[in-house]
Design a protein around this nucleic acid. Sequence first.
RNA 1: GGUCCCUUCGUCUAUCGGUUAGGACAGCUGGUUUUCAUCCUGCAAAGGGGGGUUCGAUUCCCCCAGGGACCGCCA
Length: 466
Amino acid sequence: MSKVATRFAPSPTGALHIGGVRTALFNWLYSKNQKGTFHLRIEDTDKERSKDEYKLQIIKSLKWIGIEHDGDEYIQSTKINDHIKVANELIRNGNAYKCYCSNEEIEEQKKRAKQKKLPYVYNRKWRDLPESDAPDNIKPVIRFKSKIEGSSTLKDLVQGDIEIENNTIEDFIILRNDGTPTYNLSATVDDHLMNMTHIIRGDDHKINTFKQMQIYVAMKWTLPSFAHIPLIHTIKGKKLSKRDNASTLDDYSKIGIMPNALRNYLLRLGWSYKDKEIFTLEESIEHFNLEGIGKSPSKLDMSRILSMNEHYIKTINENELYIQLVQYCELFKEKIEADKEEKIKHSLIFLKNKAKTLEDIYNNAKYIVLSKVDFDKNDLNLIDAKAKTIISEFKNNIKILKVLNKETLEPIINNLIKAHKTNFKGIGQPLRVALTGSKFGPGIYDIIISLGKEEVEKRLSDKVLA
RNA sequence: GGUCCCUUCGUCUAUCGGUUAGGACAGCUGGUUUUCAUCCUGCAAAGGGGGGUUCGAUUCCCCCAGGGACCGCCA
């Protein structure tokens, strides 16, 4: 048996969709599991909507999540002549024909079908009409001569055998009247030219597969294996579309979801391996198989994505996490200056305990990242006269400390609690606000220690004087 | 409407005829705790309905219901 080759074939007409990412992931994992190759084909034949920037963005997104294709990307538009050749060959061998129906004629048929509440199927008018009957004012389209009798079976690797009556497949157009090929022709010819052994794609392509299988047969090409994976649905149970929010990769990366977490989530969405939930990239390659793909569509669940991300935040090492944070902040927040690296890296150990996303980490680390703290007016009001006294006393008390750590700070705080007949909150809250500008955030000891003595004194002075 | 697909806790899923139907996320308890969290206990939560086959069905078959996809000279 030949080496497994799979492909992902997006059209560059928009940002990469999370459903597409999962399809790409499954294709990639399957090929890697089988020690085969994975290819990227850009289906850019829709000239109106295809954009180069989208192509670049697709490649970048795939790379972001850990998928890299083998070889160069295959650009469909450069192969149009091959597609046309096949169309002509199909006419020659009697498997396709020119259809001279006018637009009006087709529209009329569609309208009539609609009125009778019947499905529209092209009436195969020109299937057997001689070329001599052709009107000279109409440019023909080329239609594939679909089988009318009997039925066809698709041996789907995920869904099992699917049988369909041949007469439900119409004589679909393979060449438009401007001479350009349509999707079903192009995709089939390309898959053949690229020597694809496994076509793994969304459920929504099932009907196309029946059309494409007929082209393979008509051209006497070897049929690849097909696997149709269930679609991802929105929480409302509908097919996910680009119009839904939180549907593109960017939607996730911008809120600080890490690639590995999303990859892991997507892997487990519609696929399972026993009770295992967490898969490193290597493990996912090792265990991935087509048998583990479920048959029913699955709903996107944000809370799971978040908790997966949280898991990765908590378990990857601080250096790795810091790298991710820096990249994230540079892209979506403030750039982290190099001189902040030490402070932030050391703080990660407590920052990550309260974060589900990189954005959470950023928010909780803002007091370190930004040199100047923004104060909310309501929070500022918390620093009243009494608070100022406390802050000022605290500041005086730490002056004599050589090192700031929990052991040295705790007695000071405890004394203040006693002196002011208050509780920990009574001391901690004003200090927290003065130091970070927020009522919420890391533990007060963590804040003080991470900021360092000099910075603490500076920030406290500002508040007392204010 | 036609064709095809799907159906286990709210969600993702395990089970490949015999289980107290398991896990994870979310939810809710209780505990630890300096805010918010984290962490640790525990609880609750599922086989759409009806027929078969079988000693025994979530598991196999059929019917129904519900949901979904497709039905472009888009890909």
